[in-house]
Amino acid sequence: MTRGYHDIGGDPAGAVPIVELPWLHWEKQVEAIRNLLGDGTRRMMSLDELRRGFESFGEDKYKALSFYRRRLEAMIDILVEKEVFTREELEAAVAETRARWEPPAACPT
């Protein structure tokens, strides 16, 4: 029998965490980009492809990542698989973005 680590219906689990959390900007951005890539003009990634991404990137990763982070990582995996960009190109873009994010090194006084 094949059973994915995401296939948890009926498993024992603790109390439902009845909390309301804000929907953060980066999380909206993840959903927006996924929708755009899957829209009628681009047809680059279906929801089922995205699901395959997070259902196959490993159980430890799945359990450790938040809902939107899973989707973001899976989206990147699928785009790399489709050769839209390489992992190295993404790393370079991340480094560039990070440089903009982190405060510049303190000036010598």
Partner: peptide, 27 residues
Amino acid sequence: PFYIRGRAGVVLHRCGAFLNPEDLSIG
């Protein structure tokens, strides 16, 4: 899902026909 495989039930409703997610997932 795993929990429903091998189980017997009753059809409630025809939903129509849809692309197979197993195909969609591989593009």
